[in-house]
């Protein structure tokens, strides 16, 4: 049986880490500090994804092979994503109820889920035959659509993320 969501959110909020980030123990600056780490990490996530997306759209790095460019950029994306997810998780548990029931927060995760699905479709679609179009700019239509969707969804993630700050 699935335990009620409220109990789960409560147990997250009652952890020592959550109360420290909330400022209960006098560390009022912990929340902003974790948030700054989150902002730096998300800037690298979005910026690095954009470099590949712009190549897929034929707008940048036209002479670089797509496979080479993604191999160069992806370690940045995943490394920064791990930091963003971890710092985001710490921010979340400090006010788990507030965020869980916040509309922009939910839309942000919807955008991220769609961006993930888009990435998987591209990975198991046109990217499997990348050797055939590695140096073409602009690449095939499917790859261009994937690049455009990725840009739009990640911009959506950033707008929703900033919107959370105005509604919590």
């Amino acid at each position: 049986m699935i335990p009620p969501m409220g109990d789960f959110l409560n147990s997250l909020e009652q952890t020592t880490l959550a109360s420290m980030v909330r400022g209960d123990t006098g560390l009022e600056w912990l929340f902003p500090q974790v948030e700054i780490v989150h902002v730096l990490a998300l800037a690298l996530v979005f910026g690095s994804i954009l470099m590949v997306d712009l190549r897929l759209l034929g707008l940048n790095s036209r002479t670089s092979a797509v496979s080479r460019l993604s191999a160069e950029v992806l370690p940045w994306t995943w490394g920064a994503f791990a930091v963003a997810a971890l710092s985001g998780g710490v921010l979340f548990i400090s006010k788990a109820h507030t965020y869980f029931y916040n509309l922009p927060f939910r839309l942000k995760f919807l955008c991220m889920a769609l961006a993930g699905i888009n990435m998987l479709c591209f990975h198991f679609g046109d990217y499997r035959k990348v050797a055939r179009w590695d140096l073409r700019s602009p690449p095939p239509v499917g790859a261009r659509i994937a690049g455009l969707l990725s840009v739009l969804l990640w911009v959506g993630v950033i707008f929703c993320g900033r919107w959370i700050g105005f509604t919590t």
Binding site: L40, L44, F46, I158
Partner: peptide, 9 residues
């Protein structure tokens, strides 16, 4: 923030 990401990355 979108532009901060472009510049910082």
């Amino acid at each position: 923030i979108v532009c901060v990401a472009i510049v910082f990355a």
